[in-house]
């Protein structure tokens, strides 16, 4: 089966996700367009991770619908995701990448070269043979990004990509995200680091308590939030 010409725009129409009696997402309608990275902002428990998983096609919504480029294809071919706590396979750094490449359908003959190229892209070439689970948090995050890039995605979902990383590691990860953006990949990232959203993103989805409160261009959102909740969040108040 051929991949669709494009997975974009991603359209979420009246999406709801229920877990037991709890609504994790409520009536979320959004469109992700090609362009600068989109930040999904909001306090802990707002439903950011769930929204990312739904948009990536990994989680079937309880209500509403999601389409990618106008199709409801569930195939993950043009999408990639990096989880908040990526799990390293019990293999070497190169082994992790080789597996991701093979799973993405990369022909065996091209695999070795692709591994080297991706490792260079995330500056992990020197750690080629190191067991992935012995890497530092920042290195693991970079390897997870490389694994995601191995899929040659059109859209890259990131869930708190620099959570718990020190400034140097954060800087390295952000460089990779910029590089991905520059190469034409649409980045959608959940973060609660406002500075990071300001540095990287072109527009913002602000989520609170499972519902979309505000969507706006990043510059507008940070300088003139339209809702009281967003303003409170930007001030650093506790938002429920």
């Amino acid at each position: 089966m051929r991949a669709p010409a494009s997975d974009l725009p991603i359209v979420l129409a009246a999406v709801g996700v229920r877990a037991g009696t709890q609504d994790i997402l409520r009536d979320v309608s959004l469109v992700f367009q090609p362009g600068a990275p989109t930040a999904i902002l909001g306090p802990n428990g707002a439903g950011k991770s769930t929204l990312i998983r739904v948009a990536a096609g990994l989680l079937q919504p309880s209500l509403g619908s999601v389409t990618w480029g106008g199709l409801s294809a569930k195939s993950l071919q043009r999408r990639a995701i990096v989880f908040q706590r990526p799990v390293m396979l019990r293999r070497s750094v190169a082994g992790n990448l080789a597996f991701a490449l093979a799973a993405a359908g990369c022909p065996r003959a091209h695999c070795a070269a692709a591994v080297e190229r991706l490792l260079a892209r995330v500056s992990l070439g020197a750690l080629h043979d190191r067991p992935a689970r012995r890497l530092s948090g920042g290195e693991q995050q970079r390897l997870a990004l490389a694994r995601a890039l191995a899929r040659e995605p059109e859209i890259l979902f990131l869930d708190e990509p620099t959570n718990n990383l020190d400034p140097a590691a954060t800087k390295a990860v952000e460089a990779i995200i910029r590089d991905a953006d520059a190469s034409g990949i649409k980045v959608v990232m959940a973060t609660h680091d406002l500075g990071q959203a300001r540095r990287l993103c072109g527009d913002v989805v602000f989520l609170a308590n499972g519902a979309v409160v505000e969507t706006a261009g990043a510059a507008d959102f940070f300088s003139r939030p339209r809702t009281e909740k967003a303003a409170a969040f930007l001030r650093g108040d506790i938002v429920e």
């Binding site: 990536a56 990994l58 195939s75 993950l76 071919q77 990639a80 995701i81 989880f83 990526p86 799990v87 396979l89 597996f99 991701a100 799973a103 993405a104 694994r147 899929r151």
Partner: peptide, 11 residues
């Protein structure tokens, strides 16, 4: 441990 990651890789 691996489930989410393997699914995300489309294995």
């Amino acid at each position: 441990e691996y489930r989410a990651e393997l699914e995300a890789m489309g294995a």
